[in-house]
Design a protein around this nucleic acid. Structure first.
Length: 303
DNA sequence: AAGTAATCCTGATCGC
DNA sequence: TGCGATCAGGATTACT
């Protein structure tokens, strides 16, 4: 399940193949994989083919590539177009760089062919088993809090992520205090802070010794800052290790797995000893997903 | 208005 | 062997 570190690994992996490249082909094999696109598959392909691509960008778990039709002379590195190829990997979406003669993966849904200045002609495959992911061509708008930044229309409501240099720590802590909900719910709310999913929420809560349902309004500012620090630590470490791969559901653009699964302290470790105190990690269903925590280190507190 | 539940999907796994 | 039920969860939609 790709979260911030996995999406950033993919973004960085795309960069040398994509930046300045011309789209020479686009094929949608499954319309469900362009659910986020406003028009039909033909429209999606038409907009892409003949477009020059810029540097891949990311906010939270959303990825996008600025693009503009290559009419006349344009800066190949940053085309300054007003649209972008928007990508969300969902649960099982993957982007793979392949040569044109390589076979399609079983769950290949969309294929692009690009011709770039660095790596030449390549196929960019969007493979997605569960089809929670999607691509779209979306309009670029000025970011509400930074007029010189352009972000896709569908990303405007997404908060900045904790490793964004413009993330406002004090505003986040204040917003958290205004909420009347459990802390894990808040962490998973992408309009409050983005990029965090079930794995890194559980890991950060374990590190900060917080129960997943701890009321946000009962959290001290000091504890909220500590949680933010732990979030950054776990996201940064996972990024450095290439993300978390449990199975083939997450691989980078070259088909390689990440190593962070070996570093997990709570997520998926139910029944195993808490690395801090030795008590078995417990798994409870919460918000239709598993929550993993140490019943000794992460005591539930009441409002 | 803010908070929460339901919904979309497929494949691996389990029980019978 | 095969079949149906269950589980995994990110973002959006539809409620309360």
């Amino acid at each position: 399940m790709p979260e911030l570190p996995e999406v950033e690994v993919v973004r960085a992996g795309l960069e040398p193949a994509i930046t300045g490249a011309l789209v020479v082909g686009a094929a949608v094999r499954d319309e469900r994989s362009i659910r986020r696109h406003a028009g039909p598959a033909e429209d999606f392909a038409e907009r892409l083919v003949g477009s020059r691509l810029g540097v891949p960008q990311r906010r939270g778990k959303f990825l996008w590539i600025p693009m503009r039709k290559a009419l006349g002379v344009v800066d190949p590195v940053e085309p300054a177009g007003r649209s972008a190829l928007l990508i969300h990997l969902g649960m099982s979406g993957q982007l793979h760089l392949r040569t044109e003669d390589e076979p399609f993966a079983r769950h290949s849904r969309i294929q692009l062919v690009v011709d770039g200045p660095k790596l030449g002609r390549l196929r960019v495959d969007f493979d997605d088993q569960r089809i929670f992911g999607s691509m779209a061509v979306d309009e670029l708008l000025r970011a509400p809090d930074a007029p010189e930044q352009l972000i896709p229309h569908q990303v405007v409501h997404i908060a900045r992520d904790p490793i964004d240099p413009r993330f406002d720590d004090a505003a986040f802590v204040a917003a958290l205090a205004r909420r009347r909900t459990g802390v894990k719910r808040a962490l998973l709310d992408q309009t409050l802070v983005s990029g965090i999913g079930n794995i890194y929420a559980d890991e950060a809560l374990w590190a900060a010794r917080l129960h997943f349902d701890h009321p946000t309004d009962a959290l001290s500012a000091r504890k909220a800052h500590e949680l933010l620090a732990e979030l950054r630590a776990v996201l940064g470490k996972a990024l450095a290790e290439g993300g978390t791969s449990f199975d083939s559901q997450y691989l980078n653009v070259n088909g390689e797995a990440g190593y962070f699964a070996h570093s997990l302290n709570a997520y998926g470790r139910q029944g195993k000893a808490c690395p801090r105190c030795g008590r078995p990690i417990v798994r409870e269903t919460f918000m239709n997903r598993g929550s993993h925590y140490c019943p000794r280190c992460q005591r539930r507190r009441t409002r």
